[in-house]
């Protein structure tokens, strides 16, 4: 996966520095990041095209009919949004990644608003696999982790259903093995 962002290297550098200073350093391996399959990007792009396409059609036709043909230029706004959103979706999709470490799960996401979550396996209360109708059509499923803290927002969207189930089973298994209460 792409980890070539400046922040990615910054993070790695910090971890290396920590390794150097931390003599004990148990299980401090470099995380192996996994990205999302391209299905999610395809789905989001299709949804973007469908919705903004409809909006562009409405914005182009209705004012032109009611007022004057010049108003059809309004359709350019949704089209501009489409042109801007297309690469943005790709950037956002590339930013999503997760890593299963020996004792915790890492989820990293976001381009402008970056967020990185660490959930120790022992703290997981519930692992959920969800899949909506559109997601199912694209063969996608989301994995959501719940801990005792509601603020824990650990969701991995757009996974392959087989991968989602493997992840769920593995997380449940690890959670049981390392279970710790509140």
């Amino acid at each position: 996966m792409e980890t070539g962002s400046p922040d990615g290297t910054g993070t790695a550098g910090a971890t290396d520095a920590a390794d150097a200073t931390d003599a004990t350093g148990p299980s401090r391996e470099e995380p192996v990041w996994t990205g999302l399959p391209p299905g999610l990007l395809h789905m989001r792009r299709l949804l973007l095209v469908v919705w903004l396409g409809l909006l562009a059609l409405a914005a182009g036709v209705l004012p032109a009919l009611l007022l004057s043909p010049a108003w059809a230029a309004l359709a350019l706004v949704p089209l501009a949004l489409l042109a801007w959103g297309w690469p943005m979706l790709a950037r956002n999709w590339r930013s999503w990644r997760y890593a299963e470490r020996a004792d915790d799960l890492l989820i990293s996401r976001g381009v402008l608003w970056r967020e990185e979550t660490v959930v120790p396996y022992g703290r997981m209360q519930l692992v959920e696999v969800t899949s909506g109708p559109v997601e199912r059509h694209f063969g996608l499923a989301s994995v959501q982790l719940h801990t005792a803290a509601a603020a824990t927002d650990a969701t991995i969207p757009g996974l392959d259903p087989a991968e989602a189930e493997r992840l769920r089973d593995r997380l449940t298994e690890l959670g049981e093995a390392r279970s710790a209460g509140l």
Partner: peptide, 16 residues
């Protein structure tokens, strides 16, 4: 430390 359920790092555009 024993009571921590999850740890998150966030960074918006200004912070970045």
């Amino acid at each position: 430390h024993a009571k921590v359920q999850s740890v998150r790092l966030t960074q918006g555009p200004v912070r970045r």
